[in-house]
Simulated assay, not measured.
Amino acid sequence: MNIPGKLLVTSVSKHLDVATLQGWAYLPDCLLHSIVAMLHSSLDLVAFAATCRSWRVAFFAYPSKSAFRTLCPPLLVRQNLGIQTPISGPHNRHTLKFIDPSNPKINRHCRIREEILLEFRYAGSSYGHLIFFHNKDCLVVDAFSGAEVSPPRLPSVTELYYCSTLTGPLASPNSHLLVSTESSLFDWLVGSDSWSELKFSNVPIKQIVELDGQFIAMDDHMKIYTLQLAPKLVLQELPAEWCHGKTPRQCLKPWLVVCHDMLLMGCYDLRFPFQRSAFCTLHLLDMSINPAKWMEMKKLNNWALFVAADTRDPPFSCINPERWGGRSNCLYYTQGSQPWGVRWLCNEPDLAKDPSTGRDLMFTRNMLRQLQSLWVYPSMFYSNGQ
């Protein structure tokens, strides 16, 4: 971590005599916050917070932690089968590898219980946590620390979990875990001892996102709903029309993503034969008019999107990706053999844009039984550290 000498001396001298410093652990918060502001890597920020207790306190006191989730790229999580743990038996730990797109040569390894991956069905990720189910049992696991939270057992058993998401950090007040199945939306208020249930009358909810404090849901027919959590679960359809009255056709696995104050829908276009030639179109939901209208986007300008292969993993957006070596108006998508592929957005179909990836890499999405490669931000980026 290189710190310009001029910055160090000037910042410190404004607040205290340099001679009073007793070591790196005693640097003032104002200086530590200036260091945090210069970091463009999620792993660098994790390393900063792990340096010592005072640096960790300074990180959690940083006033704009939420900005890290758009200024830094998310981390790629992959199972690292090549690393063997010395522990054996029922509590063996399985290694996950975290790769930072801003510097792929630097990575981090974390471990979760192996039996979770062997016995539980994967059901999605949210706020830096992985969500699993086994029969009626649910498990929420911090991807970085392996810490586990066990909600109450679900009232019923299902084979399909279309969507699983938290509405806030686990430690925050009034955080909920929402789980969508074929016929119901289940809601667990974190810390309570039971689930509430909302029965579906039409089709299941496939994705839930938050936009300016409002929860937005989408079903399998690309219909949009507002979601109310209290005093009880309520889904209200949000009427929306398509630009020129034309609903996108031949699209596969549409997904929602929030870019600052924009709600976008991405569609995997299948108008071209063989999936390797498909491309991603984007529409912006204009909610300033009634009814709302989906407007086709020609370009995403200075944003990049990150999408995983599992439809239950949330997509992320990153602004000005060139600041960490990325590319604007591009889609970064996970792959099995390669870490990720890169394609243009809102343009004519192209083959893999990144020369480091193979020309045959395909962008596909589905619900997967086991944990696959996914994008995630550390849970500490959402937490106050209390």
Rank of each mutant, 00 (worst) to 15 (best):
M1T: 09
G5I: 04
G5K: 03
L8R: 11
S13Q: 06
K14F: 03
H15K: 02
W24S: 05
A25L: 00
D29E: 09
S34L: 08
A37V: 08
A37W: 03
S41P: 04
S42M: 05
D44W: 02
V46G: 05
T51G: 03
T51F: 04
R53H: 15
R56A: 09
F59T: 05
A67V: 06
F68E: 07
R69C: 15
R69P: 03
T70D: 03
P73W: 01
P74E: 00
L75R: 07
N80A: 12
I83Y: 04
I87R: 07
P90Y: 00
H91T: 06
N92V: 09
F98M: 06
D100F: 03
D100V: 04
I106S: 07
N107Q: 08
I112G: 08
R113T: 03
E114C: 05
E115T: 09
L117M: 09
L118T: 11
R121H: 13
L130I: 05
I131G: 02
K136E: 11
K136Q: 14
D137I: 13
V141Q: 08
A143S: 12
L154P: 01
V157E: 13
T158W: 04
T158G: 02
Y161E: 00
C163A: 05
P169V: 06
L177M: 11
L178F: 07
L178I: 11
S183M: 04
F186R: 05
D187C: 14
S192V: 01
D193E: 14
S194A: 14
E197G: 01
E197Y: 00
L198W: 06
K199E: 14
K206R: 13
I208G: 06
V209I: 15
L211R: 11
D212F: 07
A217D: 13
A217N: 14
M218N: 05
D219K: 00
H221W: 14
Y225E: 10
V234F: 05
C243F: 12
T247L: 01
Q250C: 06
C251H: 05
L252P: 00
P254A: 10
V257Y: 12
H260R: 15
D261C: 09
C267R: 11
F274Y: 12
M295G: 00
M297I: 10
N301K: 14
F306I: 04
V307M: 03
V307W: 01
R312H: 02
D313M: 03
P315M: 00
P315H: 02
F316Q: 13
S317N: 10
G326W: 09
Y332C: 07
Y333D: 08
Q335R: 07
G336E: 12
Q338V: 11
W340C: 08
W344S: 15
P349E: 04
L351S: 14
P355C: 01
T357G: 13
D360F: 10
L368I: 10
L371N: 08
W375V: 07
M380S: 12
F381W: 09
F381Q: 11
